[in-house]
Each structure stands twice: as structure tokens, then as C-alpha cells.
Amino acid sequence: MSDEPFFPFLMSILPHLGKGTLMTVELTIISVGIGVLIGIFGGIARVSKRPLLFIPSTIYVEIIRGTPLLAQLFIVYFGLPSLGINLPPFTSAVIAMGINSGAYVTEIFRGGIQSIERGQMEAARSLGLSYLQAMRYIILPQAFKRILPPLGNEFIAMLKDSSLASTIAIAELMRVGREITSRTFRSFEVLAVVALMYLAITLPLSLIVRYTERRMSVSD
């Protein structure tokens, strides 16, 4: 099998890599989705004047951004069982990556909220909207538009980092690649194809991000 010419060999492994890619994309979408949910509330907490919101959200961001995702992943998958919490690999990965992404998205939302002119909040409050209503109807919709490019970048970063989930037995792209390698010993070709498949997703995404960034700088 390993003496096969490259092209037929490629054709034979592509279906497996395709499945791995799907898993990678699924993992990333769910994780960043959780990240965005955390990030909306985290961002609001980070701009809050209330210590009860500001301090915990700041600690969360600093801890997560200051420690490796791999360590976080291992703590959830290998660490929690010693506390009696056993989670399947996919759940573990999504929890660790979601919490990780949440810290970065929190900071993205914080920046987006702070970029909205103060007058928008004042105008909303002067009409009798509560702080949270003003956030929901006035500040966040405008902030959300402005943070689409950095959110896109976060998605790209998480897509690449999801390869770490290969270490806890999730059959995502990287893991599938390494399994094929150990079966066929054609390491260079397989891993190069794996890398190219990551690139095939990230490159168009980063082009879209750059395009929206440019369009926004024009409309602003």
C-alpha cells in the first residue's frame, strides 16, 4: 500500500481526511458558539462598574489567556475524572475549547462595546431605557457589527487550535492524519495534505475577514 503512487494514495485517504475535517469544523463551530455566548456576558461584565461582575470576569480572562489550551483540555479530560466527573472526549473538548474561546471573545466584546461612542448610551438612558436595555437594543447590535472581523479571526485561530483535541482521542483532522501516518508511514505526504486542508478552510475565511474589515473602514 505504501508503494502506491501519490495520486491514487491521496484519493484513498481523502474520504477519511474529509470526515476528520468535518469533525474539526463541528468542534470549532460549537466551541466558538459557546465562546460567543460566554463572551457577550463576559464583555458586559468587563465594562461593568460593579466589582462583583468586573473582578470575576477579569480573573477568568487572565487565567484562561495565561494558560495553554492543551493544559485546559487535559484538566477537563484527564483531571476532572479524579474528582469523579467523567466526560466523554467530545464533550470535554467542547467544554475546554468553549471556555477558552469565551475568554478571547469576552475581550473582543469588551473592545467592541467600548468602541461605541458614549453618546449612544446617554441618548438611550435619557429616553428611560435601563442600562441592560440600552446594551441590548443600542450598544450590542452596533458593537456586534464592528467585532465581526475579530470574531472571524478567533474562529480561524480556534480551528487551528482544535488540532489539540487529537490528543484526547477525537477523530478530527489531525488525529485522522496521524492514524493514517502510523498505518502507512508516508508521514510527509499525509501531514502536508492535512496542513493544506486546514489552509483550505482558513485562507478563504481570512480573505473574507480582510474584505469586511476594509468595507467597514470605508463605511465608518
Partner: peptide, 18 residues
């Protein structure tokens, strides 16, 4: 908030919701 409902305000920088 209930009092502010009854006090309209117009700003120098207008501050329409963009």
C-alpha cells in the same frame, strides 16, 4: 429610569442610534 421617560433630551452631538 421612570423619571427620565418624562424628561426629553436633545444633544449637541445628536446621538441618533446609527
Amino acid at each position: 429610569d421612570r423619571v427620565r421617560e418624562r424628561i426629553g433630551m436633545v444633544f449637541q452631538h445628536i446621538n441618533l442610534f446609527n
